[in-house]
Design a protein around this nucleic acid. Structure first.
Length: 337
DNA sequence: AAACCGTGGTG
DNA sequence: TCACCAAGGTT
């Protein structure tokens, strides 16, 4: 794997050059948190903006919460941004501004679970750590033809990964496994002809590559309904900040009712007004889909409670994707009113 | 420990 | 269109 990696490794912004020194732990940590359940392509522009704006963990620790949350808008899983701030402040306050260099100490920081702690320890500090992400799970499940389905197979996959992790260059080994999983040993139609492990792969020997890793069937997503409110006054629109936890927690947002099976309609409107329908759509979250309708109105003045934001600068408000789309829809339709 | 938590790409 | 999936963590 290491020989394959030396030839085929992807060039990524958060990677140091071949056989160079270990990369900056802050940059490794930032990239690893962004990459949690998120594709490389989606992360790249966010990573560049964050590193430019907050080049050190001290800078991140000193940042305003609202600025970090707004910069994270669109990337999803917003608890990561809340933990990012908390982690930076913990490193600044409790570790003299330097990330700890052991897996155990890293694991105790906010937002660092088993995967991220191992990845930072191995990649940024050269420690031997067993790094298991979804790519590694897939590669190892195929290599050993693991019959137990996910997620119950996690302990077994972790143990098997341990048996093939080298003492030296554990970080490169982990990145090699992840590169292999994302470019060769893909979920569908894996390119086994190009794989350095194909001769050793039990799933390949059984011509059953795509049958691994085995997984338990997922539950289907319920559909919820809700109304999103666009209230304009004096070329400003009413925003508020969502509760610190839960769905889209801590993010700036358009007012909306609770999302339940039924739409509560105008009952949750932020003000009494002549609400007009502007359209709607479906937005799919992790465990439910939302059928939303957008309604708009002009208010007599900026009387309602909240943050009145200039309409022509709405793109700078840092709205999560759902509300960014609702806002775009509202702006295109409000001129009809 | 099962549930919760976003979004965009892919076939 | 739609199901699946991604460099997972927290409660």
């Amino acid at each position: 794997m290491l020989a394959w990696y030396d030839v085929h490794r992807r060039t990524l912004p958060w990677r140091a050059g071949p056989s160079g020194p270990h990369p900056d732990p802050y940059a490794v940590w930032l990239s690893e948190v962004m990459l949690q359940q998120t594709t490389v392509a989606a992360v790249k522009p966010y990573y560049a903006r964050f590193l430019e704006r907050w080049p050190t963990v001290e800078a991140m620790a000193a940042a305003d919460d609202a600025d970090v949350m707004a910069a994270w808008a669109g990337l999803g899983y917003y608890a990561r941004a809340r933990n990012l701030i908390a982690c930076a402040r913990a490193v600044a306050a409790d570790h003299d501004g330097r990330f700890p260099d052991t897996e155990e100490a890293l694991r105790s920081l906010p937002g660092l679970g088993a995967y991220t702690a191992a990845a930072v320890a191995a990649i940024a500090f050269g420690q031997r750590a067993v790094v298991v992400d979804a790519n590694v799970e897939r590669v190892v499940a195929r290599l050993f033809a693991v019959e137990r389905p996910l997620p119950a197979a996690r302990p077994e996959l972790r143990r098997l990964t341990d048996t093939i992790t080298p003492d030296a260059r554990a970080g490169d080994f982990a990145q090699a496994m992840m590169d292999l999983g994302s470019t060769i040993c893909t979920p569908r139609a894996p390119a086994c002809a190009l794989c350095p492990l194909s001769a050793d792969c039990a799933a390949r020997a059984a011509c059953a590559q795509e049958d691994y890793p085995r997984k338990v069937a997922k539950r289907d997503k319920p559909v919820r309904r809700g109304t999103i409110f666009w209230l304009e006054a004096d070329d400003h629109v009413l925003l508020h900040r969502r509760a610190p936890k839960g769905m889209l927690g801590g993010m700036r947002a358009l007012p909306s009712g609770p999302w339940a099976g039924d739409d509560s309609g105008l009952a949750e409107a932020p003000a009494a007004a002549d609400w007009r329908p502007l359209g709607g759509g479906r937005h799919v979250f992790t465990h439910f889909a939302l059928d939303y309708s957008v309604v708009g109105a002009h208010a007599p003045g900026r009387s309602a409670e909240g943050e009145w934001w200039p309409v022509d600068r709405i793109d700078e408000a840092g709205l999560p994707t759902l509300f960014a789309r609702a806002a775009a829809l509202a702006r295109s339709q409000m001129e009809r009113l």
